[in-house]
Amino acid sequence: MEHTPETIPGERRTFAPRTITVRLQPKEQLLTMPREKTVLQVLRKLGIRPTTAIVVRDGGLLTPDREVLPDDELLIRIVTSSG
């Protein structure tokens, strides 16, 4: 997928903080956070152990070593039941 930067004339986007969006399940929380380089770092930031959640981008599963790009939309589903 190509990202076309929507630049407003005169504005320097390079200085804007790069973020990612995370949808957290099952709580159904939507959060925006600064981009981390890898899936593992995103999970660490959120205090989630890698073997307790699945991470999905564009309908596909990601392992913790995968790179995260600015503007990525991740679905993180915590899978440890309380039962």
């Binding site: 099952p26 699945i54 599963l61 440890t80 309380s82």
Partner: peptide, 24 residues
């Protein structure tokens, strides 16, 4: 493990229920 089953369910496209019981 629970993690392995969750990956299986995702890859097999299993829609599942995770609204908790109100009495839990």
């Amino acid at each position: 493990s629970e993690f392995e089953t969750a990956n299986y369910a995702f890859l097999m496209g299993i829609e599942h229920h995770y609204a908790p019981c109100p009495y839990s």
